[in-house]
Design a protein around this nucleic acid. Structure first.
Length: 260
DNA sequence: AAATATCGCAACCGCCAATAT
DNA sequence: AATATTGGCGGTTGCGATATT
């Protein structure tokens, strides 16, 4: 099937919105809602395509949008959620009231990603200093961690043994050969791992019904994450987002995230 | 002061899943 | 069941503002 273009280019305006257009769109939606985005511009008297109207509304005009700079707490939340969820901006935005996926995506690309890269470089430098200083005394295990789980950029960063303890606790790590190694990023098995106590608690909840309401019980969205023989169904009744949010919030109760 | 580079953000594009017919 | 339509998402681009040379 050949999909019709989103909007006829002929005669429809593109580019930045004027204050007048904003006003028309806002007034119309406040009066009639936005049942059908495709029909909306015609009904409202706007020379825009429906997609453009929807984007303008959801990213800018919606009354519940929080404007202004992101707080430190919001930035940290984005970083943590990005570690868990990768580039699922809408899922991240769902946990940041008043912030849009577009805004979060922009902040990530323009601020947070660069900041993390710089910090990774610092870690690299520190680690190399550590290696040089300690090489004469003993061979330290070469540890690696990454602060960009599931992102498009994979940065493998050697860390000192002391540092690795806290870092690895909230990252995806496997021990072996005298060192700790992070799994490759990008496949389900590389998603966040938490310690055994977390999983055993989850399993006990699942098996017993637990103290938590049904809605908040952790489910496994990926069959590859399911503990063997536990009888989990891959077609989870809850979506992935709920799973990761539960994982994040519950694991965060007892574990410290790495400092950024 | 002018030219150039970089940054930040709004908007667009193409794809896909969900829904309607 | 097949096809058409719509909404939503993530990636990318374009452009004005600001910094640097």
């Amino acid at each position: 099937m050949v999909r019709a273009p989103c909007c006829e280019k002929m005669g429809l305006k593109r580019g930045p919105w004027t204050a007048e257009e904003d006003q028309i769109l806002t007034n119309y939606i406040q009066l009639y809602g936005h049942g059908n985005w495709r029909a909306l511009p015609k009904l409202a008297g706007l020379l825009r395509c429906g997609k453009s109207c929807r984007l303008r509304w959801t990213n800018y005009l919606r009354p519940d949008i929080k404007r202004g700079n992101f707080t430190k707490e919001e930035e940290e939340t984005i970083i943590k959620l990005h570690q868990m969820l990768g580039n699922r901006w809408s899922a991240i935005a769902a946990r940041l009231p008043g912030r849009t996926d577009n805004e979060i995506k922009n902040v990530w690309h323009t601020h947070l990603k660069k900041r993390l890269l710089k910090q990774d470089e610092h870690h690299l430098i520190d680690a190399s200093k550590y290696d040089q200083n300690s090489a004469k005394e003993a061979e330290p295990p070469v540890n690696f961690t990454t602060s960009h789980a599931m992102s498009e950029e994979i940065t493998m960063v050697p860390v000192s043994p002391q540092q690795s303890c806290s870092d690895i606790s909230s990252s995806s790590a496997t021990a072996g050969g005298g060192g700790v190694f992070i799994n490759k990023v990008g496949s389900p098995e590389n998603y966040p791992q938490v310690d055994d106590s977390f999983w055993s608690e989850v399993l006990s909840i699942e098996n017993s019904g637990g103290d938590f309401p049904v809605e908040s019980q952790v489910q496994f969205p990926f069959s590859s994450l399911e503990p063997a023989g536990q009888g989990y169904s891959s077609n989870s009744m809850y979506d992935d987002m709920e799973f990761w949010y539960n994982l994040l919030t519950r694991s965060g109760e007892s574990q410290q995230y790495p400092e950024f």
